[in-house]
Design a protein around this nucleic acid. Structure first.
Lengths: 215, 215
DNA sequence: GCGCACCTCATGGAAATCCATGCATCGCAA
DNA sequence: TTGCGATGCATGGATTTCCATGAGGTGCGC
């Protein structure tokens, strides 16, 4: 493992815990970044590497579970909760909302490290998938408005002629747009384009063409 | 809500609980089917309707969590755990393995009913998706072996000519297979066929065609 | 004003697809 | 044995797509 390949954020109001976890992680060759409060974590700049958030449920400013909800809609690393006074409803809520694990003190080092390794692996996969999708999204943004009109029609399976009629333009013009879309989206074939559109969740406009197109 | 539209399975060794839950559900117009042991539940015939499994963790024969694992690979209704002596690790494990909720006695009727309603809604959606996929799978099974050879090549974006070369047959023959595949899979267009293949998780055989096909 | 990006259209030829008709072989089951 | 389904191939025409070339109009920013 290379250094700086990943980082573990530790948020706990108990300085002894922070120190202990920092050392534990260091002994496993994992870089740790510790915070004494949720606020401190939120405001800190995060390096752009696979990460994991080890989060105490009981915090002075913002409850750990609330913090989880606050960052739920953004991109955030997998969360491993630790707590000294956990209860079942909290643990259920945490896991239901996507937390990777929920450990009660005292927990074994092995359990924690297992959870952390799983979290890091998950984040690597998630980040990789997100990056791939990001590339597609960027390409989509590079399309002109008209090209964005054409894309859904094409991947819906319409003939060029039909798609052109839909937009009220000539078939030739549509072909040009279609061709530009293929190039900009880096699609090697129509099949490719369809799969890309699927991943971008581009809605299809009721397909027609071939087979039982009777009214 | 029509009768028999859904059913809730209750597995608990305490007859009083079974009776109480049965009545509670009945008062909400929901049919209940109760069992005193995991074995009894496993062996019972299940009606083919949206369902939900309310499962006690502590059971005489098989632990509720073990039962969850046993039925994990098959199609089974969403599970709502209830327990009198739950612990956090169990609740975490249960939810991580897909349980919809984990309630500790005493729980409010409202909480239980909310969980049950959510579970039934989820199962309806799951069953609907499964049924749709089942139709596609059946159509796929209706393909001849050769047609199953052709499908992945076509949805990979290969030209008929290329796909034919791949199989060592003439382009004409391949076109016939391709046409049959489209009809049997009820795909209105190539775009449709690609999406169907995606849902069936048919692997693509390295696409080529168009754009930078220089060696 | 000028350039540039975008949208539009036409022509024409090459390539590919779609479709129908006809036919042959093989293997298996009624 | 007869029949059927699966597989294979050919011809030919209609349709569609692919691609290149050429060209006009609009709107926006420098």
């Amino acid at each position: 493992m290379r250094e700086g390949e990943h980082v573990v954020f530790v948020v706990d109001d108990d300085a002894r815990i922070r120190e202990a976890l920092g050392e534990l992680l260091a002994s496993h060759g994992i870089e740790a970044s510790t915070f004494g409060s949720a606020r401190a974590y939120i405001e800190a700049p995060k390096p752009d590497v696979p990460a994991c958030l080890v989060l105490d449920v009981e915090l002075p400013d913002i409850n750990g579970l609330d913090l989880q909800r606050q960052i739920a809609d953004g991109d955030h690393p997998p969360i491993v909760f630790i707590t000294g006074h956990g209860d079942i409803p909290s643990s259920v809520r945490a896991i239901k909302h996507g937390a990777l694990d929920f450990l009660t003190k005292p927990f074994s080092e092995a359990d924690l490290m297992a959870a952390i390794h799983a979290a890091l692996a998950l984040d690597r996969a998630t980040r990789s998938a997100r990056a791939e999708l990001g590339v597609l999204k960027q390409r989509y943004l590079d399309l002109t408005p008209r090209e964005r009109d054409v894309l859904p029609l094409v991947v819906s399976g319409l003939l060029n002629k039909q798609a052109a009629a839909e937009l009220g333009i000539s078939e030739v013009t549509l072909q040009i747009h279609r061709r530009n879309v293929m190039q900009k989206m880096a699609a090697a074939s129509l099949a490719d384009l369809v799969r890309i559109a699927e991943r971008l969740e581009i809605p299809i406009t009721r397909s027609r063409r071939q087979g039982g197109n009777a009214t």
